[in-house]
Design a protein around this nucleic acid. Structure first.
Lengths: 186, 186
DNA sequence: TATACATACGTCAAGCGTGACATATAGTTG
DNA sequence: CAACTATATGTCACGCTTGACGTATGTATA
């Protein structure tokens, strides 16, 4: 009966636009999916749960050139559940990051190898940042066109994207600093 | 046979100082434990795994005023495993954060309630930041006293702490901005 | 004396998440 | 014709993580 975070993530995506499990799985596997990810093997069972909870319904659509598909839509109960969850108070979720576990143990490493590790992640986060910056222009255009309304899906996407940009920039800068720290000789 | 991230985190803590499962569980539950957490129910079995893999050994110490305890120490194999893992290349670990899932759905929320949510998290992250800033002074003193050496545990702690500070500052600022975005009327 | 707390160690069930496996349709490429 | 790719939906085993439960010692508090 209890709906998971993934469940609510799916409800929101379906609220944005009715779609199939396949569509959802592509969205939640792309690097564009900023702060939650899932494989199709988790999504299909979750959709079944949401449906049996009465939060979504589906309609089978036959296609000529491709296999049949199930398009899911929110029910009134699903929309109500989403709206209640979205503003419910929440504790800070503690961050988990393997690179930072390695960093804690970096005093055991050869300096050159340690620097290479941080440089590699500096590059990875710079690439992710560039990707996000690319989306930003498109999203801001759409924002203007929709009259800057805050009750449309783009608004949530925009706030989330800006956090992604801010997060990646901060991470990249720290990696650069960390690389310098291990490289520098006194 | 495969050692998990938690396993390596434990190896590093034991490399810093031989200690008991109870000690480790307190470290990994405190908010000071920046980027990985674990309960004792996960730590005790993991220590058993590490021991059967030959990475650690323990010595039972009897205490008069408290129950007996097992003090774990790294073996040569454990140290070698830790050193190999620490510099092994690693993919960016995708971030997971429930607040950002809510943010994606924030277009469904009442603006005042949404603002309260962001203000609340702005406060939570500001508090965490203040906590980290407090530790910073102590750690930097110890750094000076140890001659700024990069082959001692404090170095890993220092790099990790600085990332914690940077992360919390960035998060706090974004929360403030998000609150302003939902509060502002055009 | 009873209760609570800190220390210290452990197990177990249930949920979450990943990777592998499985099936089927239809188009593209060698 | 065979192999591969994209679409589309699902299951299953395994490992990670949490919360609850369980045991025991010794001290402090009511």
């Amino acid at each position: 009966m209890m709906t998971s975070t993934l469940g609510y993530a799916l409800l929101n995506l379906i609220a944005c636009e009715p779609q199939t499990g396949y569509d959802l799985s592509r969205t939640l596997q792309e690097r564009i999916s900023f702060f939650w990810q899932a494989k199709h093997s988790q999504i299909y069972p979750e959709l079944a749960k949401l449906e049996s909870a009465g939060f979504i319904t589906h309609e089978v659509v036959r296609q000529n050139d491709k296999p049949d598909k199930k398009i899911y839509t929110l029910t009134d109960a699903g929309l109500a559940a989403l709206r209640a969850w979205v503003v419910a108070p929440l504790e800070m979720s503690p961050a988990r990051d393997e690179l930072l576990v390695k960093t804690a143990a970096i005093w055991q490493a050869d300096p050159a190898q340690a620097a290479a590790l941080f440089r590699d992640h500096e590059r990875q986060h710079a690439e992710q940042l560039a990707l996000y910056e690319g989306i930003r222009a498109t999203l801001e255009e759409e924002w203007e066109r929709s009259g800057r309304r805050r009750d449309l899906p783009w608004f949530g996407s925009y706030l989330t994207l800006m956090r992604g940009i801010s997060y990646e920039r901060e991470y990249r800068d720290w990696c650069r600093w960390a690389a310098e720290m291990v490289e520098t000789r006194d």
